[in-house]
Nucleic acid binder design. Sequence first.
RNA 1: GACCCCAUCGUCUAGCCUGGUCAGGACAAGAGCUUUUCAAGCUCUCGGCGCGGGUUCAAAUCCCGCUGGGGUCGCCA
Length: 432
Amino acid sequence: MIKVRFAPSPTGYLHIGGARTALFNWMYARSQNGIFVLRIEDTDQVRSKDEFLQEILDSMQWLGLKWDEFYKQSERFDIYRKYAKQLLDEGKAYKDGEAVILKVPQKQVKIYDLIRDEIDVDTKELKDQVLMKSDGSPTYSFACVVDDALMEISHVIRGEDHISNTPKQIVIYEALGFKVPKFAHLPLILDDERARLSKRAGAVAVTDYRKQGFLSEAIVNYLMLLGWSPGNNQEVVSLDSAVKKFSIKKVNKAGAAFSLEKLKWINAQYLKQMETGRLMELLIPFLKERGYVDGNVDQDRLAQAVNLYKGRIATLVDFLDWADYLFIDDVQIIPEDREKYLSQNFSREFERLAERLNQLIEYNMKTTEEAFRSVTEELGLKASDLVHPVRVALTGKSIGPGLFEMMSVLGKEKTVRRLKEAFTTPSIRREE
RNA sequence: GACCCCAUCGUCUAGCCUGGUCAGGACAAGAGCUUUUCAAGCUCUCGGCGCGGGUUCAAAUCCCGCUGGGGUCGCCA
């Protein structure tokens, strides 16, 4: 029976590297019909915080990585104490004050690693290992080994940074008479400078990406591509189909640099394919937080707005930024765009267009375009002469979807008002 | 520094195990198309097997060395 575990320490938020480790463990378990254990390594009572634990559980769930078994090391101190005593009684460990220290025998140890094959290490490089600290709590390696053995973990899948403490742990397994599991050390996720990903490189917590409007599917998809490939030149892959193809042996050995650009691209792919209704649900909390909508959301209008931008946003937050003009009363015009498109006074043309639009009985994409074209023709202008200034006046931006689609979603009343007010003092704020 | 791991376009990777198909794809970049804008879409282009030795008829692929990068050296996890 295959059994794996993800063992985060609640001393910080779940970060992107941890999430990838969890994901590979989870995929391996699912692909082998095995069991996925979540074990909280909270032996450091000072640094462990409940807030972080909650956040880790929340992020795991958000990512869709459900666990089959759950443990907390802080509830298992008696067990570690028992095994420490056993080693003491057997003379394999000794005391230094209150601490219990393992005598490390000199020998060659072999790590069997699914990704890197065999790794040989001479334990003469190792000092005797502290198992129980003076304060009565177990060290990481000791608790880890005892738990992995007792929980019958068959494969320890973790970051490459753990390779060097694997020999120490093997020595502990052997002292305890436990079966040594197989290992798989994943390549590390690196930053732009090819150093270990750290806070300095920007967002590193899963929560941060969530707040920035990334989808869990996209994050999971991107993370699985770091060090592994589903083959057939596929990149946008669902977790389900990835599980079917997953092989731990096909995981790369070299570290992989994290690319925010590519994550954004994948996120955009998911956003494009997403059903409008679901996208609306995801967007509503963001819209509320920014005060763009209140309790009762106009579903039809929101659906129109979402469809307008669905194909061109990379994150949920992008939607708020691009479509803000649909939700607020006063458009904020980007200064450079005002300079470029509204420095010429179009008040006469805008007024005429506003009047024409205001007379429309049916106000939609088609009728606004007809009205627009007839006005420009009467004025002896090309449509494009007025398209850009109007777009800026209505949305505050020089780029966006088709003008008439936007006018239609914006609605007659706001469109007309913004056209009429475009050349009046922008500092005057109005009540709706 | 010691020990360990690693090495294909700028980045993520396929190919390596079981040597022989112009080293394939994606992101980014550049060019063009579309056009009412582009941050969307489509098309094209640019760009890589770190170096040196072997083995072989033949090496990205196997072996050795070098160089380079990373990780670990806590009573943190």
